[in-house]
Amino acid sequence: MLHTFVSYVEDKPGVLTRVASLFRRLNLNIISLTVGRSERPGLSRLTLVCEASAEAGHRIRASMFKLENVIDVDDIAGAPSVTRELALIKVAATKHTRSAIFELVEVFRARIVDLAPESLLIEMTGVESKIEGLIQVLTEGDNQILEICRSGKMTMRRGHHTSRVLRAMSQTAESDPEESASQVQQAQEGAVIQPE
């Protein structure tokens, strides 16, 4: 099955190598990986998708936590969440074929972000299937696709869910140490190990 992990990691040289190396060691192919700045200074947020057996999720998450630079790991699994991907698609287009492409772009709620004499650049955000749908109709319409650049998936849980570990950590900074220790403790109770 597909596993999606959302993780906060320190924004330092070599951290991505450590995460990637863990998956290499476990002989798991990373299907998609996006990394960027998060709402927290000094922390990057990454969304990683990989194919592994259903029971592997626990060990992957536990192993990611063992990396010193990894602050938090969330296994999205089947939880309600929003996943998006960004695609830039460059299509060959002359002034005669443009309008047909404009219509498609309209239907898919994509945008034209660059227009050149012989090509168009389409920006599209959505779930994977929607992006693939646009690519498919473009291809079927005999449009020559010149380049595709896809960002990989970004995932966020729905609702008011913030990692309890992170929440406790931000409180740690403000409150006295003993109280925050118990808060971190409580937060860690969210990380339950379920023996099969």
């Binding site: 936590f65 570990v165 140490p177 860690q188 990380a191 339950v192 190990i193």
Partner: peptide
């Protein structure tokens, strides 16, 4: 910083 135990200790 104080040692942060593995968050999945349980």
């Amino acid at each position: 910083a104080p040692y942060r135990p593995h968050p999945m200790l349980k």
